[in-house]
Design a binder for these strands. Structure first.
Lengths: 225, 225
DNA sequence: GGAATAGTGTCTTTCAGACATTATTTC
DNA sequence: GAAATAATGTCTGAAAGACACTATTCC
């Protein structure tokens, strides 16, 4: 068997917050069974449509949702002769973050699965729960020294919502004092001047300064380890 | 054209220190020309020999040198329809670090090229100088918050030699005080009790505590940015 | 006023960095 | 003793974290 017959796919782990919980985009696999099985958005490179592997990844997301990821990065490329019974196979795994505005159109069969359910393992086919784990590990790590949290929030958000992202992803969060100091430094955020009102003191609404790219800080939070 | 005809290779950027300068492992391309051309250790996955892509990468290094990398990680997977005139092609790029003990047997045609030469661009064929740049970017970044420097040193080394690794890789280095404090904390290093002598006060020789895995610190050096 | 959440003040801790000082070797 | 490099002492600064305190809204 030569390498050219290898099966190469691009698999995307797209994260989104729904009801303060982290979810993953998945697609129902048609089957006659009762328990539905799910798979990540995945597919092959289309040499005609895709100029690069990133294009392939974007295309997989587009197939399932009208939303575009505000952030996407390659996590790893896996390849071995065990993942697929037909022989050697390869997967380029991406991690994508999708903002939390409303206005989403899901394709038929597409759904956001909560990452919290212990059943996620059984819900996902192939080795896809392992891919989710790897993307999640990356997210958990990178969230601690970058501006990634903002990509999971709506266009305008409060500092408390950043705190909420940490809670959803890590199950714990740094103190608000530290989040404030970090995210209000530099040109990272812009104060919209608007307020979010509730039955309490209103919170300032910020938006991302798209002038400045994904921000990398030079320290980790240590309270979240 | 279908994806199965894509050309997939595994390319390794292996770094090593020689005479206090950073070098990259390369292989001479046979050609009738005068100026020799070089390429990175690269090759295709062998479905029989390789259980995983990592195996393929290790095999490329073994072809050129008797030394095994003390550290290796995937950098990125590149794929597009521009790199190779024959159409879509894909490369999984690895970064490897090789210790600085002596005892090396190089295969015929293999050589360590200095990364400092401005001619490296012209010496390397295909898009390999771009791959070196990406691996080097990763190394420059990760060196600042991890124990990676020790993988470029011999089995026993002094703290000054760690300083030297920073100079070789970044062209600048954090103060010795900071290096000492960082690398002598925890179980990272073991004092061998031996000394390196010169025409001055001898320096303590340390070795890596292989009990502890690659160490990740929670701060960057900022003097080196 | 009370409940609730937003936001500030300030002190402590940790670690990088600056820089002076001391230590140990060879010559 | 001089030169050279190794190692320590100690102070400063930046940012995280703890925690008390104040602010602003709705009811």
């Amino acid at each position: 068997m030569s390498l050219n017959t290898a099966l190469i796919s691009v698999d995307v782990v797209a994260f989104r917050l729904l009801k303060d919980k982290l979810h993953v985009l998945a697609q129902k696999i048609q089957a006659g069974k009762n328990d539905p099985q799910w798979m990540l958005p995945a597919g092959k490179i289309d040499p005609v449509k895709d100029q690069s592997i990133d294009d392939t990844a974007y295309r997989q997301i587009e197939r399932l949702t009208s939303k575009k990821p505000g952030y996407m990065e390659q996590v790893v490329t896996l390849g071995d002769n065990r993942r697929d019974s037909r022989g050697w196979s390869m997967t380029v795994v991406y991690c994508a973050l999708i903002d939390n505005n409303d206005c989403e159109q899901l394709a038929p069969g597409a759904e956001w699965l909560t990452t919290e359910a212990k059943t996620l393992n059984e819900q996902l086919a192939y080795d896809h729960s392992r891919l989710v784990q790897q993307a999640l590990d990356r997210l958990k790590s990178k969230i601690q020294y970058s501006s990634l949290p903002v990509y999971l929030l709506p266009d305008a958000f409060t500092l408390s919502e950043i705190h909420g992202v940490f809670s959803a992803v890590l199950d714990k969060a740094p103190p608000m004092r530290s989040i404030r100091n970090r995210f209000l430094q530099g040109d990272l955020l812009i104060d919209t001047g608007k307020l979010r009102r509730g039955s309490n003191r209103p919170a300032a609404l910020y938006k991302v300064n798209h002038h400045s790219e994904t921000w990398l800080f030079d320290r980790l939070y240590s309270s979240t380890r």
